[in-house]
Nucleic acid binder design. Structure first.
Lengths: 136, 136
DNA sequence: GCTTGACTTAGAGTTTACTCTATGGTGTAC
DNA sequence: GTACACCATAGAGTAAACTCTAAGTCAAGC
């Protein structure tokens, strides 16, 4: 039976990587630049992800998949971890990102419609071609 | 009165740049990599954009603003300009991009909802803070 | 006791999509 | 006749976000 040295009660980087579909390199990179963590380490220097870390990773993943920049996310996390009262600043940051995101969704929705139009056009042309070849 | 040497009946790069909100550098770059053009030139080597060029630029701009990669667009344009019958290949390419685009819109819509949730939370907290300070 | 496979770090390299710099040409305005 | 405002090219540089490489540690299995 394989007993993995890295798993006691610990949550390893591999597990987190698989859970979120981010590479181990990306997770270490995110930690290095201060987007997540610092992640706690065992006595031998192995990362052990806590519930709080996982929550943050999940949030970061969601925002990154929407194209929100790493710089903005780092800024948000710094506000979040700050001793000061940053409620309003965080709210304003989010409102601003929301606005940008909405614009992007609109652009993409326009492009999607455009693609749909073209695809329909091609479907018709492919069909015409088929009919034409049948008439020979 | 200023008579621009570059405008006779010609459509200059500056005009196109302003019309589409793309820099002159970007337009030249797009031509260089084969995404648009080749654009016709006057005897002295000045670009003169035709209606057909403008249509393509507009399409490219729309697709780029939706995040469709330059590589994919070049491929599409190559199929478009090909002598061969590439109808079905173009349709398949568009269908594939449509699928990817739709997924991205979904991801972004999820993130938007997430942001809305957080913003509401912050609004409430900011309000609570205000009320609290008023009670003092 | 050595191989395997997981982990670590520091730092170099890659990809995408521009964006800028240097250098030079041309026509109009003062 | 020179300053200004355009245009051109070739090629170097940049920013963002990873991604990879090298070198090393450590525990389990054979």
């Amino acid at each position: 039976m394989v007993y993995n040295q890295y798993r006691g009660d610990r949550v390893t980087i591999k597990e987190v990587s698989e859970q979120f579909g981010l590479t181990k390199d990306t997770l270490r990179y995110y930690e290095k630049i201060g987007l997540i963590g610092p992640i706690g380490k065992t006595s031998r220097g192995i990362r052990d992800f806590k519930e709080q870390d996982l929550k943050r990773i999940e949030f970061v993943k969601c925002m990154r998949s929407a194209g929100i920049s790493i710089d903005v996310l780092i800024h948000y996390m710094q506000l979040f971890d700050s001793e000061d009262n940053t409620l309003e600043e965080r709210r304003d940051l989010l409102i601003n990102q929301r606005r940008i995101l909405k614009k992007r969704i609109e652009d993409m929705t326009k492009a999607l419609k455009r693609l749909d139009g073209k695809i329909n056009m091609y479907d018709q042309q492919v069909l015409d071609q088929f009919l034409e070849s049948g008439e020979k």
